[in-house]
């Protein structure tokens, strides 16, 4: 069974006095159980719309959406799912403990179980020292961690996180990433939307890319990025003014590595490498390294979006 399954999902927002707006068209997607699934797309692609349909906050206008095998509108599917909204404030007058206890109270857990879950979750998200602090006194990063805590408080097998690391500093981004990895290691399924491609590349097993409400690309990350790369980076050292000037003047993409003097790097198609290396050696330079350029998600993403935008005009 897929953790999430979406078939021909569409959503048209209608509000009185405005033109209807179709945010999702015919989207189909299946998220397997276990692992981390990245849901990507530029601003306004429809990521949050999809997520809000899955968690039952908005109504779809067509197609089907299943959460752990049950229709998304079915309240029982909410039992086994945790959700972190894209923006949200938590009741400012409650303390972290009270807030988590409130959110935990809808799952029929015993008092003892609740107390132990709250302790574990606060520890996991690094908020133990803030247990009795009112929410309004937390910093943004802490509030985001509290958001993750409320999503996992009932220990659900499926987590749906809408931009969990948006607006956080790099340190806290890493902390949040580590928390997500911990959940994966516990066997949970994590479905999260993000703009941070390096982060996605780093932690996701599969990704889907959405653009203007349509699916552009979907698959295992390793497969998507696989394939012989056409380019290599060549690092070499040479006397100033020699090959550096010659290449620069003839338009070869070569750059000085600022950290070390007389060290340069250039990127060439694989078939040119042999000739370029002999050029370096023949002008008394020394070759430091030749590394194939790994295809990365960012390049792939930019290329796909550019192509798609080009097609739609």
């Amino acid at each position: 069974m897929a953790a999430l399954e979406i078939r021909n999902l569409s959503k048209t927002y209608r509000s009185p006095g405005r033109k209807p707006f179709t945010a999702l068209r015919d989207l189909s997607l299946a998220v397997p159980e276990g692992g981390i699934y990245g849901f990507l797309g530029p601003n306004g692609a429809g990521k949050s719309t999809t997520i809000k349909i899955l968690v039952g906050l908005i109504r779809k206008t067509g197609g089907e959406a299943y959460v752990l095998g049950r229709p998304a509108e079915d309240l029982t599917s909410h039992q086994e799912m945790g959700y972190l909204p894209e923006v949200s404030t938590y009741y400012p007058y409650l303390t972290c403990r009270e807030l988590l206890d409130f959110y935990c109270s809808f799952f029929g857990l015993s008092r003892r179980k609740r107390v132990s879950r709250i302790g574990e979750t606060l520890a996991l998200t690094g908020l133990t020292s803030k247990t009795d602090t009112p929410v309004r006194e937390l910093s943004k990063g802490m509030q985001q961690r509290l958001g993750i805590a409320q999503a996992v408080i009932h220990d659900p097998p499926l987590l749906i996180l809408d931009e969990p690391t948006a607006a956080l500093d790099p340190l806290i981004q890493k902390e949040v990433r580590d928390i997500i990895l911990k959940f994966r290691d516990q066997g949970k399924t994590i479905f999260f939307s993000s703009h941070r491609l390096t982060e996605v590349e780093y932690i996701c097993d599969r990704v889907a890319v959405l653009h203007e409400g349509r699916l552009l690309l979907e698959g295992r990350l390793a497969e998507l990025l696989e394939g012989p790369s056409p380019d290599c980076d060549v690092t070499f050292s040479a006397e100033e003014g020699e090959i550096w000037d010659r290449w620069r003047n003839s338009g070869v993409p070569v750059a000085r590595i600022t950290a070390s003097p007389q060290t340069f790097q250039a990127r060439f198609p694989q078939k040119e490498i042999k000739q370029r290396v002999s050029e370096i050696l023949s002008s008394r330079g020394s070759l430091l390294s030749v590394t194939p350029v790994r295809r990365n998600l960012e390049d792939l993403f930019v290329k796909m979006i550019a192509e798609a935008s080009h097609e739609t005009g």
């Binding site: 039952g56 309240l75 029982t76 909410h78 959700y83 909204p85 923006v87 949200s88 009741y91 809808f106």
Partner: peptide
């Protein structure tokens, strides 16, 4: 949006 977290539960 405090209602979002609440209504994503079995409520």
């Amino acid at each position: 949006k405090t209602a979002w977290c609440l209504l994503s539960r079995p409520v």
